[in-house]
Design a protein around this nucleic acid. Structure first.
Lengths: 330, 330
DNA sequence: AGAACCGATGCAAACGTTTGCATGATATTT
DNA sequence: AAATATCATGCAAACGTTTGCATCGGTTCT
């Protein structure tokens, strides 16, 4: 492997000058710089990033920690962040926690050991509070997105969950559904409690009393959504706002089993706008979070070391599962 | 940040001994080791991985380069690889190429600069040959999977594409479809040419002449699948073996537009067993590649520096789109 | 002409760890 | 008792880069 010392020897100068020339430092003669660049090219030199980072005490790698990468939301968010970070010369290490707290702590800790320049983070379901984060992460700059802990320092990028849920629920009300329940998420997590609040506010603003017995928490996977939908049906619901698309999918399973017609006799809206929501029969209405934009915003917040909360609007995509009597235009 | 030198000073010994104690080197007294471990713990020491890697001339990071991470196949493959690599103390940098050759070259090159321990690689569609890989990657150990270049060194993990396509096509023949076309992929890529060969062999083994005009190459996305399916319908096909699920999805769009009943009047089998194939109406039969196992195999091949080709069997999942008259049991 | 300055380069230390070799103290062998 | 082996530790160099300070030849100012 050819080093700057090799180049220096070949040109009869010192490594210092070579280093400066390569770094574009103005304290080196143009002529020398050209010679260095030419020699570097000719000899096939490649900077040893490890050594460089060690000396400078910083890395050009950032870590992205997400529960899963095979979710439309997270994979698009990563793409969005990469698009900005790449331009700025950063590379991303992507870590999945598989929704496990242990894995999450290990991931944060490893990133810290690698002295990454920053960490982008959306916590897992098992994490009910932020107490594990700072001990594992130390003083590495932190940008949180989607599932954020308010009490941690650093930037936070979140979807407009309250407004999104409000819009989805209002949509169900306007569609004429009368007994609207919700498959809520894990309420210790802000995204989910915000969605529940949005759901509740929409009901109350329309003169419908909020009924605790129609709230089914901890239902964000296909299986739990399926089980909770059964309970919602028993409770007399004729519509559900689901805090996750996989729960909505499970609900569809349950409704099909009960031979309940969607959207005629039951309305359904999910959250996240997963790719599959468009493909099911009936297709699933969903409130989407614009993950690509969230990723970009997160990257920008990191690059500008901006603190504070950025809220990205959500968009309701109306599909068959809530389009009763075809009253909603495309 | 506390270093081994700090620990050494605190204990009145040298950094060498501290280093050896922490590394579990037997050339250090048990008593001393305990003291070191205790001091390290107490002082909050954390190994500087950058320095360690620089000195040892190697990294504990591997790179994984894939076209996209939001594909069931790739995300599961990554999970499989991570499960093995994590145990062995490696961390993965995941890079998406978005199917672009330029991005692919940049990714390989960046990984090289970071002196990663190895690269796991599935090339993008735009790459028609391997000529860019070694120049960008240098001598970093390489493990290829799925879309591989035979002429590159290192291990290769591939699905049994020939056999999978053979099984899928045979299945369509046995279901009574008479004019079976194929939406093939990019034939300069081995996975796709293998699938075409399997398709062809299945036809010929059943006394059906191979008809070039029923082969529609370069059709692996929803849009291209849609367009090619239109052409297949015009060519009188009553079934398609698709080399990708997204193409099968596009075909479903086209068939629906033509009001052709699937599977009664048209049979469809896709490839990759994407999550959504189960959800469409009708659901899509698909040959799956067992990506999790492929990822594990790739990681094992890397750890054992094994060379050569490993073939992972594929599995046909029969769903509605080819289950004519319900003759196939679940 | 001497002082002050400037631009280009060299020197050497530093980042934190690992490791071959040397050292000195015990323990074992002959 | 001398020779040898064994053990625990220290010394110092090395990995490749960056950077504060020194140097030195040449220019500009008064």
């Amino acid at each position: 492997m050819v080093t700057i010392t090799d180049i220096a020897e070949a040109l009869g100068i010192t490594p210092s000058t070579v280093s400066r020339a390569l770094a574009g430092n103005p304290r080196v003669r143009e002529e020398t710089r050209q010679a260095v660049l030419e020699a570097a090219e000719r000899m096939g030199y490649e900077r040893n990033v490890l050594a460089s980072n060690l000396r400078r005490g910083k890395s050009d790698i950032v870590g992205i920690v997400v529960p899963r990468i095979n979710r439309e939301f997270f994979s698009n968010l990563i793409s969005g962040a990469e698009s900005i970070l790449g331009q700025a010369g950063y590379r991303a290490i992507i870590c999945q926690t598989h929704e496990e707290l242990d894995t999450e702590i290990k991931a944060l800790h490893t990133l810290r050991l690698h002295r990454v320049a920053g960490v982008f983070f959306s916590h897992c379901i098992e994490a009910t509070d932020s107490s594990h984060v700072l001990p594992a992460l130390g003083r590495i700059p932190l940008v949180q997105f989607d599932r954020v802990f308010r009490d941690l320092p650093g930037a936070k990028i979140v979807g407009a969950n309250f407004e999104g849920a409000y819009e989805a629920t209002t949509h169900l009300i306007l569609s004429g559904y009368k007994r609207i329940g919700t498959l809520a998420g894990y309420l210790h997590t802000e995204v989910y409690s915000d969605r529940l609040r949005g759901y509740r506010k929409a009901l109350e603003d329309n003169g419908i009393p909020y009924d605790q017995s129609l709230v089914f928490p901890d239902s964000i996977f296909r299986e739990t959504g399926y089980a909770s939908c059964h309970m919602a049906i028993d409770a007399g619901c004729d519509a559900l706002y689901c805090a996750g698309d996989y729960a909505a999918l499970g609900s569809l399973d349950a409704l099909r089993e009960h031979r309940i017609s969607v959207p005629d006799d039951f309305g359904l809206v999910g959250t996240a706008n997963e790719f599959f929501t468009e493909l099911t029969n009936p297709s699933i209405s969903s409130v989407g979070q614009r993950p690509y934009d969230m990723g970009r915003e997160a990257a920008i917040a990191f690059l500008e070391s901006r603190e504070g909360v950025t809220v990205i609007p959500m968009e309701l995509h109306i599909r068959q599962s809530s389009n009763r009597n075809n009253i909603w235009l495309k």
